[in-house]
Structures are given as C-alpha cells and as structure tokens.
Amino acid sequence: KKYKIKVYVKDKKTKKWKKIKEIEVDTKEEALEAIKKLPPNYEVKIVP
C-alpha cells in the first residue's frame, strides 16, 4: 500500500494554495518522516 504526500505552498500574490510536489512512500512512518523535513510554511496532505 502506497501513500502519496501532496505538498502545497501558499502563493503570496494570489493567496491560493498551489501544489508544488508529490512524494510517494510505502509506509505511514515514512510519510511522517518526510513531512518533518519540509519547511513549516508548507501545507501537506497524506493520501492513502
């Protein structure tokens, strides 16, 4: 079972969220580790 991490950042001009990358991992633990490495201003969604 794979997890997709969708990473969004808020556009300063439009104030809208835009997706900047998608990370695919195998476990939820890996997903949480990957999220920890991202800057705090990123919004993250984990999709099972």
Rank of each mutant, 00 (worst) to 15 (best):
I46Q: 01
E29S: 07
K4W: 08
P39I: 10
K2H: 12
K12W: 10
D11F: 03
V25C: 10
K10V: 10
K15V: 01
K10M: 14
D26C: 09
V7W: 04
W17C: 05
K10I: 14
K36E: 07
A34E: 15
N41T: 10
W17M: 06
N41F: 14
Y8E: 00
K37D: 10
K16A: 06
V44S: 06
K10G: 02
Y3F: 14
E30Q: 12
I20E: 02
K6E: 15
E43D: 09
P39K: 07
V7A: 03
D11A: 05
K2F: 08
K6S: 12
K36P: 03
Y3K: 01
Y3Q: 01
E33Y: 03
K18P: 00
T27G: 08
V47R: 06
K21L: 14
I5C: 03
K28E: 08
K12V: 11
E22Q: 05
P48F: 12
K21A: 14
T27N: 10
V9F: 07
P39T: 06
V7M: 06
D26Y: 09
D11G: 04
K45Y: 13
V47S: 10
K16W: 05
P39R: 11
K16S: 04
V44M: 05
V25E: 01
K45Q: 13
E29G: 05
K21V: 12
K2L: 11
I35W: 04
E43C: 15
I46W: 08
E33V: 09
I46F: 07
K36N: 09
K18A: 04
Y3H: 04
K36S: 13
K18W: 08
N41G: 13
I23D: 02
K1D: 07
K16T: 05
I35K: 04
K6H: 14
N41I: 11
P48A: 13
K45I: 15
K10A: 04
K2Q: 07
K16N: 05
D26P: 05
I35G: 02
K2I: 06
T27K: 02
K37H: 13
T14S: 09
A34L: 14
T14G: 06
K19M: 13
Y8P: 00
V25L: 04
V25R: 02
V7K: 00
E30L: 09
V25N: 00
L32F: 12
I5S: 00
K12H: 13
V47T: 11
K18V: 13
D11C: 06
K18M: 09
E22C: 07
E43N: 13
K6T: 13
K4Y: 08
V47P: 01
E43P: 05
L38T: 02
I23E: 02
W17Q: 02
L38A: 03
K6R: 09
I46C: 09
K12P: 12
Y3P: 00
N41H: 14
V7N: 00
K16C: 09
V44T: 09
V44L: 06
I23T: 04
P40D: 08
Y8S: 01
E22K: 01
K16R: 10
V9H: 06
E24H: 12
V7E: 00
E33G: 05
K13S: 07
K6M: 14
V44E: 01
P48N: 10
K18E: 06
K36H: 07
W17A: 02
K15L: 07
K45D: 06
A31H: 01
K10W: 15
E43F: 15
D26K: 09
K12F: 10
E33C: 07
K21R: 12
V7P: 00
K12S: 10
I23A: 02
E29N: 07
P40W: 06
K2M: 08
V7S: 00
I5D: 00
L38P: 03
I46K: 01
D11T: 06
D26W: 11
K15M: 09
L38F: 13
K28H: 13
E33R: 10
K45T: 13
K1C: 12
I23C: 09
K37Q: 12
Y42E: 03
D26Q: 10
D11Q: 05
Y42M: 08
K45L: 15
T14Y: 04
K36T: 08
D26R: 06
E24Q: 09
E29F: 08
K18D: 03
I46V: 10
P40Q: 10
K10N: 04
E33P: 01
L38M: 11
K37G: 12
K19S: 03
K21S: 11
K21F: 15
K1Y: 11
T14L: 05
I23Q: 03
E29D: 09
N41K: 11
Y3R: 01
P40E: 07
K2T: 07
V47G: 05
E43R: 15
V9T: 07
I46E: 01
L32H: 08
V25P: 00
K45A: 09
V47K: 05
I46S: 01
A34K: 08
V9D: 04
K6F: 15
W17S: 02
K10S: 03
P39E: 07
V25G: 01
Y3S: 01
K12C: 07
P48C: 15
K6Y: 15
K2R: 13
K18G: 03
K45V: 15
A34G: 02
N41E: 14
